[in-house]
Design a binder for these strands. Structure first.
Lengths: 340, 340
DNA sequence: TGTTCACATGTGCACGGTCACAAATGTGAA
DNA sequence: TTCACATTTGTGACCGTGCACATGTGAACA
């Protein structure tokens, strides 16, 4: 009946040492795979550990080493497909590398909320931060709070490229735009994401670059908020005038909203209007019509993100990963040559 | 030029104490809002903290208190809308309560993967665990590894209800089924989720219960995997025979796949076939046709989940939250009376 | 004026690891 | 046998915080 004694302290390194007949330091060496430990000693210690169900205490370790082995993720809209996939990939990669991950969500993207989230992460003594959010403001706050841990952004910002790792959003947007131009479209709208999201800006730039390069006149992009609802409302207005034959939407959700509005307006897709999305969410293949879009490899992004971040941690040798991940155009049935 | 001296140790409680002319214990009391501290003393200490940019060291705290203030989430398919929303809500609620959250994803749901994920959480000394995954196996492993921390599951399992908190999936499924029956449908299929997911089972049970209660003959549900792709392939087969007039899908993604297959088969929705989903993902309102579905309040679920878990932690007074969250039927345009 | 008591503050150690350094043991050549 | 040196193991301090307990302080009361 010893099993339900109250408050049985978890076994410590010294308990193991006593039972194995060695010093606590020897146990510590076994834990850390120190090279000069006699095999027989090591085996004995390991056996005692097993018997005692010994688990190293992370807090103690973090305290004495001065390192938490934790990295933080600062994320906005974390239940959407893109961010959620990135987060999952980052967590997997971090765990693989022996790191723990802690996520702080931004409910709103104002100064105060960003500060609170960063504070939360810093209080945990995270060793590095991954930012999946509108960068510009976050970086301002990072600087303001004089946060000193290394950080990595999942999107290239242009001027902070040492910290950035990205899918080449510009190239992706150009692929999408070029696809529409190649089909013969000349009056193409762009439904962009929120201005302060780097991806949104990059995709917009890619769109404008390609249009310029191909000498196609452009109209001002419409600024959206990533949601299908916004796409729907924007669509209702756009399809009223119909002074265009194709739209490139900055993400799949907004593209879905556009399609909805198009049907409401009695338009036939893709005959009357071609639509291209961005992200290739798993649902996109089943939209009506199946959506032509640009696929990003989030898993790869997560892996490289962690590799980059860890390399910037003290002790690692800094690498600079400037090679962007190239997105792919997935052609489905939402695009066709213009009917007129 | 003192700002880039290497290795400036972060200020500790004693540094603050020295500058404020008090003992380290007094500083500690200020940190923990101890009642008997003179206002003036407290103010002085707080001021020094501000000056020094003092941040308490979480590892030291965890070590001396023996509590990590961290809870773990064990999640599968964490990039899908339901789990992702729950995770976000749980994180927010936990942060609110001063807790940290750490997520471990299951890549596969086999024994080994579950063990690895649980180990990862336990090594962090999480104080409690939230399970968002196929419960049955996870609970087996929990028991096997003799995990002793309290845990909460986001889904009711029937026999572990003290640990469970849930949207009443059965009631939700009955709402959906009843809606179809009320419209006049008598030959209704159910596209279920994976057998080992509690939600899937509960929704299936709700479907069968309601069909039984209304005296409508049923056919065996089809077991899917939550993905739109599966819905599509199941649909291709089902619409070949067309011995039914409505389908209740266990989630919105599979419903989307079904719709896709229905269009491929040249069917008119909802005239030829009515479809109901489950979850009300933000995109569902923009499907073609907009999807009738059952809405779950994930945010509320996350909040109550944390409340329940924290109450089970040592020190809290155990509450039992047996009141399930009631889901709501959202009627859109994917359902109509049968045409014949 | 001394006693009591609540409040405010200080002292020293424990938490469970790691680190720097010291000591013991083993090994091979002079 | 002895010394030099590599390998293996041990000793004690330290990381930053909280806890138990001791101590100091002032007001209320007899």
């Amino acid at each position: 009946m010893t099993e339900n004694l109250p408050k049985v302290r978890a076994p410590s390194i010294r308990d193991v040492a006593r039972l194995a007949g060695v010093s606590h330091q020897t146990v510590s060496r076994v834990l850390n795979n120190h090279p000069s430990i006699r095999e027989s000693t090591k085996a004995r210690v390991l056996e005692v550990m097993e018997d005692l169900q010994y688990r190293p205490n992370r807090a103690a370790r973090a305290l004495s080493r001065g390192r938490s082995r934790t990295i933080g993720i600062l994320s906005a809209q974390s239940s959407e497909y893109g961010p959620a996939s990135s987060i999952a990939a980052i967590q997997d990669a971090a765990r693989e590398a022996g790191y723990y991950v802690n996520t702080a969500n931004l409910t709103t993207v104002d100064q105060e909320s960003i500060e609170a989230a960063l504070m939360h992460l810093m209080l945990q003594a995270v060793e590095g931060i991954v930012v999946i959010a509108p960068q510009v403001r976050v970086f301002d706050v990072l600087e303001q709070l004089s946060i000193t841990v290394p950080f990595v952004s999942l999107q290239s910002t242009g001027h902070l490229d040492d910290h950035a790792l990205s899918v080449d959003q510009i190239a992706g947007a150009r692929l999408a735009t070029r696809h529409l131009i190649d089909l013969g479209h000349r009056r193409i709208y762009h439904l962009a994401g929120p201005q302060d999201w780097i991806e949104a800006e990059a995709r917009m730039r890619g769109f404008l670059d390609e249009m310029g390069a191909m000498d196609v006149p452009t109209t001002a992009p419409i600024l959206g908020d990533w949601t299908a609802d916004f796409g729907y409302h924007a669509g209702r207005e756009l399809f009223g005038r119909r002074d265009f034959t194709a739209i490139f939407s900055s993400n799949d959700q907004m593209a879905l909203g556009l399609m909805h509005a198009a049907r409401d307006a009695g338009l036939d897709l893709p005959r009357d209007i071609s639509i291209v999305g961005f992200d290739d969410i798993p649902e996109a293949a089943h939209f009506w019509p199946p959506l032509t879009t640009v696929r990003q490899d989030f898993a790869e992004l997560g892996r490289r993100c962690i590799a980059l971040l860890l390399s910037n941690l003290p002790g690692g040798e800094p690498i600079v990963d400037r090679e962007p991940i190239m997105p792919r155009l997935i052609v489905r049935e939402s695009t066709a040559p213009p009917a007129f």
